[in-house]
C-alpha cells in the first residue's frame, strides 16, 4: 500500500506541474503535451517514456487496489463484523481524523473518477464542451461546463482526504514515524501534500470556468 501509494503521489505531483502549463498559454501547453511523447527519443520510440510511466502506474494501481481488498477482507473479519459495538456513543472514535474514515469510499470515488478522466482527456470518448484537436482546447472546452468542474472538484476533495491520511500512513508504515516530533512533521507533510495536490489540480478548472484562462 505504502510503496504503490507513494509512486502514485510522485506521478500526481508531475501531472499537476504539467497542468499548470495551461497558465503559460496554448502554445506552451500543447508543446508540453507533445513533448511528453518525444521524451527519451531517439533511445525510446515515440511515446515510449509515456508507456513506461503508464505501465509503472498500472502496476502501482493494481498493487494498491489488491492490497486494499485483501486488508479490507481481513480487517472486517478481525474486528468482529460490521456492527461491532452496540453503543451508539463514540462512533467517531477518540481522536481519529475525518480523512481516515474516507479512505475506502473515497478510494472508490477516485477509481470511478480516474476512469471518467481517462475517457475524457486521454481517450476522448466523452467530450463535454465539444471535441478539439489541440490538447489545450480540449481542456478549455471541458472546464467551461459547470457540472464537469463540479465532478472534478468532488473527486479532488476525495483525493485530498485520501492523501491526508495516506501520506502519513505510508511514511509511518515505512518506519519514518520515530518520535512525537516526527509524528507532527509527518502530519504537517501530509497536509501540505494533500492541499498542494488538491488546490494545484483545481486551479486549472476553476480558472477556465471563471474565464481567467480561455
Amino acid at each position: 500500500m505504502a510503496v504503490s501509494g507513494l509512486i502514485m503521489i510522485g506521478y500526481l505531483l508531475a501531472h499537476m506541474y504539467g497542468n499548470l502549463k495551461v497558465f503559460a498559454g496554448q502554445q506552451a501547453f500543447d508543446d508540453y503535451a507533445h513533448h511528453l511523447r518525444t521524451i527519451g527519443e531517439p533511445i525510446l520510440p515515440y511515446g515510449g517514456a509515456l508507456w513506461v510511466i503508464r505501465i509503472v502506474l498500472l502496476v502501482a494501481i493494481i498493487a494498491h487496489i489488491y492490497s486494499a481488498v485483501v486488508l479490507w477482507r481481513r480487517d472486517r473479519h478481525a474486528r468482529g463484523g460490521t456492527s461491532r459495538y452496540d453503543s451508539p456513543k463514540a462512533r467517531r472514535g477518540v481522536q481519529r481524523s475525518y480523512a481516515s474514515f474516507t479512505l475506502r469510499w473515497g478510494g472508490i470515488v477516485i477509481v470511478l473518477f480516474v476512469i471518467y478522466h481517462l475517457l475524457h482527456l486521454t481517450w476522448h470518448v466523452v467530450t463535454p464542451g465539444g471535441p478539439a484537436s489541440s490538447p489545450y482546447q480540449r481542456v478549455v472546452n471541458g472546464f467551461e461546463v459547470w457540472w464537469l468542474v463540479a465532478v472534478y472538484t468532488i473527486s479532488l476533495l476525495a483525493i485530498g482526504l485520501h492523501l491526508r491520511h495516506g501520506v502519513w500512513s505510508a511514511l509511518t508504515t515505512l518506519g519514518a514515524h520515530t518520535s512525537a516530533a516526527a509524528r507532527r512533521r509527518l502530519n504537517i507533510l501530509a497536509y501540505v501534500v494533500a492541499i498542494a495536490i488538491t488546490v494545484g489540480f483545481l486551479l486549472v478548472p476553476f480558472s477556465i470556468l471563471f474565464g481567467v484562462v480561455n
Binding site: 486488508l71 481481513r74 480487517d75 473479519h77 478481525a78 474486528r79 472514535g93 477518540v94 481522536q95 481519529r96 481524523s97 481516515s100 479512505l103 491520511h165 502519513w168 500512513s169 509511518t172 508504515t173 518506519g175 519514518a176 514515524h177 520515530t178 518520535s179 512525537a180 516526527a182 509524528r183
Partner: peptide
C-alpha cells in the same frame, strides 16, 4: 486473525500505559 494496522492511532489514545504510537513505526 488480527487485522492490519492503518495508522489511525485509536490504540495509543486508549492505552492505559500510554504506549506511544511511534512504537508501531
Amino acid at each position: 486473525g488480527f487485522g492490519g494496522c492503518t495508522n489511525i492511532g485509536e490504540c495509543a489514545a486508549v492505552c492505559p500505559k500510554g504506549i506511544p504510537l511511534e512504537t508501531i513505526s
